[in-house]
């Protein structure tokens, strides 16, 4: 079981208090009417799938209920950092 540090509660909590909520830092086009279908489809459906460190949204659904972001290594499954939603991705050594 992973221990995940919720940046809102400021406590380490077990993974089963959380829900994964997809890739982080996916920006919605500011003017959807101005992008073509391919760009809109890319925004809706295309996600990275790297081997290594990914930035993901997680939600502390059985605690404070808030969304935050986490850096997770897809090989080791280790959570390397958690940070508030809206903050920029921190630098960490993988």
């Amino acid at each position: 079981m992973l221990l995940i540090r919720c940046p809102v509660c400021a406590m380490d909590r077990p993974e089963l208090e959380f829900r994964h909520a997809g890739q982080a830092h996916v920006a919605r086009p500011a003017d959807p009417g101005a992008v073509d279908d391919a760009a809109w489809a890319a925004y809706l459906y295309l996600r990275d799938n790297p081997k290594g460190v990914v930035a993901e949204r997680w939600r502390h659904v059985h605690g404070c209920g808030r969304f935050f972001n986490a850096l997770r290594h897809t090989v080791s499954d280790r959570i390397l950092a958690t940070y508030p939603a809206g903050a920029s991705r921190p630098e960490v050594a993988p």
């Binding site: 509660c9 406590m11 380490d12 909590r13 077990p14 089963l16 208090e17 059985h62 605690g63 404070c64």
Partner: peptide
């Protein structure tokens, strides 16, 4: 599953947890 050890938790602490 909250760490209740005195060094991590103590009087006046609160946890919202299952």
């Amino acid at each position: 599953r909250v760490d209740l050890h005195p060094r991590a938790f103590g009087p006046g602490r609160v946890a919202v947890t299952p």
